[in-house]
C-alpha cells in the first residue's frame, strides 16, 4: 500500500456556489495516498468536487491542492498527472479500442508511437487484450468501462479518479473492474479516488472514505475506524422477547429490534453480561449472541440519520459518542 505519504488532495474551506446554491460548503479535506471512496447521495456535491479537483471550475472561495498543484491556477498540470475515468459514455463508438486509448494518450502529450505501445499494455491490463482491434460500437458495457479505465491509466498517472466505475456492469465484469482498481492500488502503487453509490464496491477497493452531504463533509477516515461508531451485539431471542427488550431498555441499553433479532449498542463495558442477565431474569432463551459489524451502508445511514452534518472525522465521530 502507499500509506504514509503526504496527502494527495488537500482543501481548506473550499467553497463553490452557483448563485444562491452552495454546491461545496467550506470543505476541509485531506485525502491520503491509496484508495479512497467518495460517497454521497445525488446532489451531495461529488461531481462538483471532482470538477474542482480537476481544476475545471473556479472555486468561489477557499483553496485546494492536488498532487501539490493549486486547483485555482494549475488545472492543466493537475489533469496531466491525473487519470479521469468518467461515469458516462466518453468513447467514440466508431473507433476501435486500441486507437481510442492511443488517442487518449496523445491528448496528454504522449508521442504517437509511445502512446500506441502503452495502449497495448493498458488494454492487456484491463482484460481487453484480445478485443483491442474491435470497434467500440460492438463492446459490451463492461468492455467500454474497461476501455475508459485504459484511457485513464495510459500515461501511468499518480492518481486515478474513477467516477462510478462499476456502473451498469454485471457481477463478473464488476468484480473484474474492482479487482483491477485494487491491483492498480496495491500492485501499481497508485492512488484511486472512487466515486460511487455502491457501498459494497467502495468497501471492496477502498481503505478510506470521504462522505459528502449537501456540499458538506460529514465524515472522512478509515472505513474500519468509522465502523467502530456503530458496533453492536446481535442477539437472537426465543420467547419473552418483549420482556427482554423492556429489561434491556430499563438498564439503559440501546436496543434495535426486528422480531426475535435484537441489536444492542456496544457503547459501554460488558454489554454481553448485561444481556445475559436480562435474559436470565426474564426467562428468555438466548439462541445466539455475537458482535455485529456494520456494513458501510449501515454506517452511511447511521451517520446521515444520527450524527448530523457537523462531524468532520472518525475521531470526532468516536469522541462525540455519536450513537445518541
Amino acid at each position: 500500500m502507499v500509506e504514509g505519504r503526504a496527502p494527495i488532495v488537500h482543501t481548506k474551506a473550499l467553497t463553490k456556489a452557483y448563485g444562491e446554491h452552495v454546491a461545496l460548503n467550506a470543505l476541509d479535506l485531506q485525502i491520503k495516498a491509496g484508495a479512497t471512496g467518495l460517497l454521497g447521495a445525488n446532489g451531495a456535491g461529488k461531481s462538483t468536487l471532482l470538477k474542482t479537483l480537476l481544476g475545471l471550475i473556479q472555486v468561489t472561495s477557499g483553496e485546494g491542492h492536488v498532487l501539490g498543484h493549486d486547483i485555482r491556477t494549475e488545472g492543466p498540470s493537475i489533469r496531466q498527472r491525473i487519470g479521469y475515468m468518467p461515469e458516462y459514455e466518453a468513447l467514440d463508438p466508431r473507433m476501435d479500442g486500441i486507437h481510442q486509448v492511443r488517442y487518449a494518450g496523445e491528448l496528454l502529450g504522449m508521442n504517437p508511437v509511445v502512446a500506441m505501445q502503452r495502449a497495448h499494455q493498458c488494454l492487456e491490463y484491463v482484460g481487453l487484450g484480445e478485443q483491442r482491434y474491435r470497434q467500440i460500437d460492438g463492446y459490451s458495457t463492461g468492455m467500454r468501462q474497461a476501455t475508459k479505465l485504459a484511457c485513464a491509466i495510459v500515461h501511468d498517472p499518480e492518481m486515478i479518479i474513477a467516477d462510478e466505475p462499476s456502473n451498469g456492469l454485471d457481477a463478473a465484469a464488476r468484480d473484474f473492474m474492482l479487482q483491477t482498481l485494487d491491483t492498480t492500488v496495491r500492485n501499481g502503487q497508485r492512488s484511486v479516488l472512487m466515486a460511487s453509490h455502491l457501498m459494497d464496491d467502495v468497501e471492496q477497493v477502498c481503505e478510506r472514505i470521504v462522505l459528502l452531504h449537501k456540499g458538506r463533509l460529514v465524515a472522512e477516515g478509515k472505513i474500519e475506524d468509522l465502523k467502530a461508531i456503530d458496533r453492536e451485539y446481535e442477539v437472537h431471542v426465543w420467547g419473552a422477547a418483549d420482556a427482554m427488550e423492556r429489561g434491556m431498555l430499563d438498564r439503559g441499553l440501546r436496543v434495535r429490534r426486528q422480531g426475535r433479532i435484537m441489536r444492542v449498542a456496544d457503547d459501554r463495558d460488558d454489554v454481553p453480561r448485561e444481556v445475559l442477565e436480562v435474559a436470565a431474569s426474564t426467562g428468555a432463551q438466548v439462541r445466539r449472541l455475537h458482535t455485529y459489524e456494520a456494513s458501510l451502508e449501515d454506517l452511511f445511514i447511521a451517520i446521515m440519520e444520527r450524527l448530523g452534518h457537523d462531524v468532520k472525522s472518525s475521531e470526532d465521530l468516536l469522541a462525540g459518542g455519536g450513537m445518541g
Binding site: 492543466p76 496531466q80 488517442y103 496523445e106 491528448l107 496528454l108 502529450g109 504522449m110 508521442n111 504517437p112 509511445v114 502503452r118 499494455q121 492487456e124 491490463y125 482484460g127 487484450g129 500515461h155 501511468d156 479487482q179 483491477t180 491491483t183 492498480t184 500492485n187 501499481g188 497508485r190
Partner: peptide, 27 residues
C-alpha cells in the same frame, strides 16, 4: 483467469501543449 494482471508503470515524458494540440489536429 488465463493471464496475470500486472500493473506496468510508464516512465516516459509527456510533451508540452503544442504536441497535445497537434494530436487533436492530426486526429
Amino acid at each position: 483467469q488465463v493471464f496475470t494482471q500486472t500493473y506496468l508503470p510508464w516512465t516516459g515524458t509527456l510533451n508540452p501543449r503544442w504536441a497535445r494540440n497537434y494530436a487533436v489536429y492530426r486526429h
